[in-house]
């Protein structure tokens, strides 16, 4: 069952990601990207991380992509346009980069990770059973890793302030 689900959702994710980069109309591309996000959320749920799956849908599919659509529509980019793919040289370079990426991916799948970063099978399931889907995340996040978590939020705040300052010269 788990294997079937994995192939199903990873297949949908890959196909919709391909459609996302090949469609001409930006709005249609954005919608395929939403479907990719959704399938990735499903993969998280298969891995036993329901909370991350829900947040993936809530934040990426539900909020960020809506803002993307909003911007695409405001800039009136919505209709399909003639292709902006580069010429033959550009295609060759892209093919080369793609080949490097594929080899890297193949290499990554060959590596067996250390025991320290691999959980024994069934750990997540029992943890979710014990503490609930949210407790399994919030306990380490707000106890063991509180300082890194807060520093990350300061980083995000700095990014927001920077964006506002760049966009608005006269405050």
């Amino acid at each position: 069952m788990q294997v079937v689900n994995f192939w199903l959702f990873s297949g949908i994710a890959i196909i919709s990601a391909l459609l996302c980069i090949t469609r001409r109309s930006p709005v249609v591309s954005a919608m395929w990207l939403v479907l990719t996000m959704f399938s990735i959320a499903a993969l998280f749920v298969i891995l036993g991380a329901q909370f991350i799956g829900a947040i993936q849908v809530l934040v990426y599919a539900g909020a960020i992509m809506v803002l993307f659509l909003f911007v695409i529509m405001l800039l009136n980019l919505g209709r399909g346009e003639p292709t902006d793919l580069p010429g033959r040289l550009g295609s060759l370079i892209m093919l080369g980069v793609g080949a490097v990426l594929a080899v890297e991916l193949w290499a990554v799948t060959r590596i067996v990770p250390d025991g320290a970063i691999r959980l024994p099978a069934g750990t997540m399931e029992s943890l979710v059973e014990q503490e609930g889907a949210v407790g399994a995340i919030s306990d380490p996040l707000f106890r063991d890793y509180l300082v890194p978590f807060e520093i990350t939020s300061v980083l995000l705040l700095a990014a927001v302030v920077g964006a506002v300052v760049l966009a608005k010269r006269r405050l």
Partner: peptide
């Protein structure tokens, strides 16, 4: 009876805007 319960509600209702 999902383990994420209400978060599912928030996530799916945010899809409705599309």
């Amino acid at each position: 009876d999902l383990p994420v319960g209400l978060l599912f509600v928030l996530a799916i209702s945010s899809i409705g805007v599309y």
